[in-house]
């Protein structure tokens, strides 16, 4: 692995910038999936700035690692990280949700560079990742496949079909991550449809399972490194997260799943994230243009 040493500070700065971009996008669009974007800022940052072997100059590079955002509704922060990495220009971020924008509400692999699968209908991304990982084995390729799932998404039966098959096919080139923020659209996971014992379930499906704090860069990095050493079976990282993490009025609030944000809320959120005053002013004026 040609891993550069990563500065923790740099990762923190990137994750924070992603959150700022998400607030700006949702502010300008008047709609967006805020909570489930914020909860994966550290995970996406670590994937794109520590783990994934990808080339923004050549998004179709054959040997690249594949990342699938199975919880496609977290598109705002996915687009933010793709712009941060250089797959898409930063100035198109505010076009999100426009009919002619490459940044559709849920990621479209035909429109947006760096998107490996069109997702959004929950439950489907892990199967696609299984197909890619299986295909890599058939072709003798050494790239790895990553899929990020929502916790509520694991209520879909297809996820468990995919889990069963990944272990049958011994896909040690496949890593799945569950963003376990404990909330889904209509309420608490534990009340809507409990997933526990989640760790035991995946272990019983034949996966190597690692449970971490999904906001700790150290724990994410250690889990990613550990996964690479596991042979003969796929790995799942259960990442305990907080929905809305980073913006205190959104944190752990079911109401912030898919939202519009008022000018005051955007201002408050950007302030809390340490966004420079002139950028806040610009964002607020852009919101008023509509």
């Amino acid at each position: 692995m040609n891993k550069k040493p990563v500065e923790r500070k740099k990762l923190e700065e990137i994750a924070n910038r992603l959150r700022i971009k998400v607030v700006k996008m949702i502010g300008k669009s008047g709609f967006g999936h805020a909570g489930g974007s914020m909860s994966i800022a550290e995970i996406l940052t670590t994937l794109y700035f520590y783990e994934l072997q990808v080339d923004p100059e050549n998004p179709a590079w054959e040997e690249r690692d594949r990342f699938i955002l199975s919880k496609g509704h977290a598109a705002p922060i996915f687009y933010a990280v793709l712009s941060e990495k250089g797959f898409i220009p930063e100035d198109i971020l505010l076009t999100i949700h426009h009919p002619d924008s490459p940044l559709q509400c849920h990621p479209d692999m035909r429109l947006c560079p760096g998107v490996e699968a069109s997702t959004g209908a929950l439950g489907q991304g892990l199967s696609i990742a299984v197909g890619m990982a299986l295909g890599a084995k058939l072709k003798g390729k050494s790239f790895r496949v990553y899929a990020l799932l929502g916790d509520g998404e694991a209520q879909e039966g297809q996820v468990w079909e995919a889990a069963m098959s990944a272990s049958k096919f011994k896909l040690d080139n496949l890593l799945a991550i569950i963003d376990y923020n404990k909330l889904e659209l209509s309420g608490k996971i534990n009340e809507v449809m409990p997933l526990e014992p989640l760790y035991d379930k995946w272990v019983s499906f034949g996966w190597h399972v690692i449970e971490i704090n999904g906001h700790s860069f150290t724990q994410i990095i250690n889990a990613l490194d550990e996964a690479k050493k596991i042979k003969g079976k796929p790995t799942l990282i259960i990442a305990h997260t907080v929905k809305g993490q980073g913006v205190s009025f959104m944190e752990d609030k079911v109401e912030w799943h898919a939202v519009s944000m008022s000018v005051d809320q955007v201002k408050e959120a950007l302030k809390e994230l340490g966004c420079p005053q002139e950028e806040i002013e610009l964002t607020l004026s852009q919101m008023k243009e509509e």
């Binding site: 594949r66 439950g123 892990l126 299984v130 197909g131 079909e161 069963m164």
Partner: peptide, 15 residues
């Protein structure tokens, strides 16, 4: 497991 089959097929086709 037909749903998984279609997803796996989609993933394979991208390669």
């Amino acid at each position: 497991a037909e749903q998984n089959m279609i997803g796996i097929a989609a993933g394979l086709s991208t390669l």
